[in-house]
Design a protein around this nucleic acid. Sequence first.
DNA 1: TTCACCATGTAAGTTGTTACATGATTCC
DNA 2: GGAATCATGTAACAACTTACATGGTGAA
Lengths: 204, 204
Amino acid sequence: MSLRSALLALLRIGPMSGYELAKQFSQSVGHVWHAPDSQIYPELRKMATEGLVVAEEQTRGTAGRRRVYHATEAGERAFLDWMNSPLKYQRTRDAAHLRAAYLESADQEAICDFLRGHIEHWQGELKVWEDEIATIEALESPMLNRRLAVTAEEDREVTIEYKKFAYEGLAARARSEIDWAQRGLKLSRRLERTAETASSRHTD
Amino acid sequence: MSLRSALLALLRIGPMSGYELAKQFSQSVGHVWHAPDSQIYPELRKMATEGLVVAEEQTRGTAGRRRVYHATEAGERAFLDWMNSPLKYQRTRDAAHLRAAYLESADQEAICDFLRGHIEHWQGELKVWEDEIATIEALESPMLNRRLAVTAEEDREVTIEYKKFAYEGLAARARSEIDWAQRGLKLSRRLERTAETASSRHTD
DNA sequence: TTCACCATGTAAGTTGTTACATGATTCC
DNA sequence: GGAATCATGTAACAACTTACATGGTGAA
């Protein structure tokens, strides 16, 4: 459902080909909801059969073809229905925290690698999201600008603010993860020392 | 892979039936990695065919049966391999933040419902994790106690500390989500006022 | 005897991953 | 002519969801 909503959200900006949509999923929206092309193309076809979008077949050059999708009124309604309906939360499934719970079974080196990897991963995400916020604030986000161009003047600030709000939440999460992993590194160093002390006490 | 690792982590405490494992997934481990019975039973069978666990068939009463699974050495090795190997991160797929990015398209009431729902959801999670931390600290976690019973004395503190560490990370995340949604509520009230001001200015 | 709990699944469908496959166009 | 990029997919598999289906045990 969310992939579909993300696609509809983009198509509300204007008609786009599967390729363009896939691009957006490796940039803007994709930073919130990732999807590979192999999922996007079939989903668009499915949405077309359900009348949420219509495909306009175009040719490029002599033999090139592209399918430009337009959101229909049913698609617009489906998007707004999703926006106004309660969000379904999935149960927690967090591999990093699962592993963290059993870190005593890992080698000291693996513990450091894991925590450092966690920090690196979330620093990467944080950078993406902070850059996105900066781009939005500088009014340099291509997609948002296209959206603003078809938005009534009095709704523009609201549109910008919510977009920033979304990315700020993600950034906050990233910071929290980095913070946690850093505390983990300290903890693992402390526990390593404790273990050494304990074993030396035993061998005294 | 993570479901498998979670199952193996539990089986390292001692032999358990699919039912018992499913119970744990609606309690302790399940607070980190959720899995329904319909996923656990088939996974255990698959792990049995791969030699990671062996099933010991037992009878209960006259006709009751149960399959008690033991982790094999290969299972133990698989778990440790997972613990010592780099963690794979999936790309972001966050429905709440996806929706937040397009909140200008939602009704004011839906915005509040969404943000309040988000707060409620994460407050629920937070309570679970904080309770879990308290239970661990009080040495009242049944599963952890069973694990500690088969753990060398000098490794007990480490085991406890990492378990707490894991839940603290989850709790931090929950707090960050609650915080974000609360800022969202304030933002939405501010933007609502702005919109009214703007429209009243127009209708003056 | 009834109810809570023990116990084990299947079946159908959706979503997501990874890898593969193909060909046109545009610009240098 | 070659490389980047435009453009669209398929196929196989893994993971997860939702709903259904069945029966035994143990205690009040």
